[in-house]
Design a protein around this nucleic acid. Sequence first.
DNA 1: ATTGATGAAC
Length: 548
Amino acid sequence: MLGVSLACKITNISHNLLSLLDKCKSILELKQLHAVVISCGLSQDDPFISKILCFSALSNSGDINYSYRVFSQLSSPTIFSWNTIIRGYSNSKNPIQSLSIFLKMLRLGVAPDYLTYPFLVKASARLLNQETGVSVHAHIIKTGHESDRFIQNSLIHMYAACGNSMWAQKVFDSIQQKNVVSWNSMLDGYAKCGEMVMAQKAFESMSEKDVRSWSSLIDGYVKAGEYSEAMAIFEKMQSAGPKANEVTMVSVSCACAHMGALEKGRMIYKYIVDNGLPLTLVLQTSLVDMYAKCGAIEEALLIFRRVSKSQTDVLIWNAVIGGLATHGLVEESLKLFKEMQIVGICPDEVTYLCLLAACAHGGLVKEAWFFFESLSKCGMTPTSEHYACMVDVLARAGQLTTAYQFICQMPTEPTASMLGALLSGCINHRNLALAEIVGRKLIELEPNHDGRYIGLSNMYAVDKRWDDARSMREAMERRGVKKSPGFSFVEISGVLHRFIAHDKTHPDSEETYFMLNFVVYQMKLSCHEDNQERSLNDTSMEDDLLLF
DNA sequence: ATTGATGAAC
């Protein structure tokens, strides 16, 4: 009698414990339940351990390291446990751990199953390591799993992520019964490899298109720089496709950012609100960047301020700090950097580039040195972009000799962007002797870059050295370097207008040129008053504006 | 229990 009631109680406890584990919300709660499991002597019992592993390895609020500690205590883990831990690591920051656990598995003679492989392939894809992917693929073939559609689909993605669309297609072609995932993986694979003609073809061949098919195609066009095409497909999607989701909106807002299409960007935001799409952190970052790049910094800040600070990451801070910097709102930019540190978000290399850009705009040389030095102090290595930004700060501030010395004492050879920054500093601050040295070095470095010849030629023109200026233009023509026309876009009431220099195809071009010439006249007038020497004569600006 | 998408600087 007593035995039966005790057994009943134990069954009850186990049952309760299992349902508590199912309802677990935080890692702290999980640890407490784990403690109960251990004290009941159940620390090797499968249903409990499986649930503990699942939560800690797979849930958003889990902890893969905790998961691994639990796993390594198991005397003989089930294949489910092995798969869970491999899956957890394949989604983590260290996908390489999936592969080292796989190797451990092989050493112990434990056979992976059809569920193990998709996680291993995913880990290889996330590592962008084709070599690893190929050896996993070899294991798949050796163990006779190459006809599993889940595995084949994940292989398509892996090869495409590694930039090998040919092998991705080989796997794709070998699939007997292709499903939407097979098609989407192939379509996205082409898009990722920049093969938009193939991506478009795949899209058109698909009998069943879902939101991912449309989003992958749109994103492919955005990544290829074909923003209008991307927007056109988004419009077609609205009339003849599935409802767009928050991932689609990231791509289209990125397109608006690149085009500077503020009105379209605002419509994107309206679409998000009207359709109740979730404002994920990724989407909010994309919106902040879009508004900033479209010149609407207030709207960027509005989006940013609505994100609860505990949910931010370094990317969204970089977007807003960088946006403020390009708007010349230097103080605000640095203020937000301080705020970021208070919130406890660790700056990265990009953050420092944004900060240096802010300093360059604000003429803050001392602060720039401070940031440049703290970069190394925080365990980061300054890249050539950091050096270039620092040169830009010094050059804009007129500290040309310091900038030159800074370049000379660098561990590596100067890049074109460093010399370019120094050259424009030399021209702006009228140090023509140094400009000539730097300019000639630049042409040596980039003999096919049109702007370098033009920069130096304009500089000679400023110095009234007409022969040198002309010979620069001639050298450019001799070497077959074409002056590529500069484009500019203006968006008015949602319509994008494109202008090229000397272009008279726009219906309102006559009025536009009248206004432009008026502005130039005003500028010249005020320049003349400001500084007799600094007239706009002979600069490229005149080329672009007055030759209409 | 599985596979497929998205954000920051130049």
